[in-house]
Write a protein that binds this DNA or RNA. Structure first.
Lengths: 166, 166
DNA sequence: CATAACGTTTACGCAAACGATAAGGTTCGA
DNA sequence: TCGAACCTTATCGTTTGCGTAAACGTTATG
């Protein structure tokens, strides 16, 4: 073994981070990160000799994904776990698919995947539809107000429009 | 005829409902409805002689709106309260606007409303963007799988496609 | 090698959003 | 007028999603 043995093990920069660095990187608190592990949302890539949690780039992606779902989409952690588990089941099924030659099993695996994808899409579409309705209202209101403002600045009287625009 | 029959009192359909009927109508439990009142999300239209809560059509709309935001959009109740309060502030400001002739005050009222609408729109757009990205993935997956299935049913071999599609 | 900075597990605490009784009053048809 | 079904307030319990110490090991640095 050479004196360079602590160099990067391969070209893909396997930089393992400790929990506080991960915290800074993802915007999640260490407590939250440990909690997510506790409820099975992720497992750190490894542990140090002193049992420190060590995270790799994939873990960071996963945590950022979780945070996005939580903050931006408003999913509960159990919903997020469902999504992540679905993802894993898909991965496993792909593996099983490649390992079998049986046409019937292959078909059922694909059908299962189709079902999952379909239901996920429906769920998301429902959420999106609701949000877009609200957005449309906000945008319309903004446009209406902008017109109003222009009227004011032009010294016009803004009471003559029959549009109530709620 | 049972005592459950609620005769319509007059032509303007002032049908006031009691909490359990509202529950059936909105899908919210009586406990949740009372809780929403407790934290200031709505006030029932009135009370009966025996202090029963009585709800009108507007209350139902409001409750359905709340449920939509909670379930579909994943908003917290405090966020929902913000949205509802914003709505009321807008209503009040419209009143103030009509009551004043002062151009400066009018301008500031419109600017305030514009600001609110803009920030609301931005919030919603962020959520929608995140959800649409996820939806796009699900849809793409579904299409890929459907093609796969067609291959299988046609007896073709589905290993020659170089598209990995994650 | 001392020590500060960081990590570990364990455990209790807390706000949000209700669910589940309890103890009692109201409505209304029979 | 009576009882079943409904309502009221009040209180306690539960789950989720972490915050916050306590008591103790690990790592990096002068």
């Amino acid at each position: 073994m050479s004196h360079l043995d602590r160099a990067v093990s391969d070209a893909t920069s396997t930089a393992l981070l400790r929990i506080q660095e991960v915290s800074a990187e993802t915007g999640l608190t260490p407590r939250a990160i440990r909690y997510y592990e506790e409820i099975g949302l992720l497992a750190p890539a490894g542990r140090s000799g002193g049992d420190y949690r060590l995270y790799d780039a994939d873990d960071l992606d996963r945590l950022r994904f979780i945070r996005g779902l939580r903050d931006d989409a408003g999913f509960s952690l159990s919903e997020i776990r469902q999504l992540l588990e679905d993802e894993q089941i898909r991965a496993r099924n792909r593996g099983r698919f490649r390992e079998t030659r049986d046409a019937t099993e292959r078909r059922s695996l694909v059908l299962d995947a189709l079902d999952r994808a379909g239901r996920q899409a429906a769920t998301l579409e429902g959420k999106i539809a609701r949000l877009e309705a609200m957005l449309a209202e906000a945008v319309e209101r903004r446009a209406h107000l902008a017109g109003h403002l222009a009227d004011l600045d032009a010294g016009r009287e803004p009471g003559h429009q029959r549009s109530d625009t709620r």
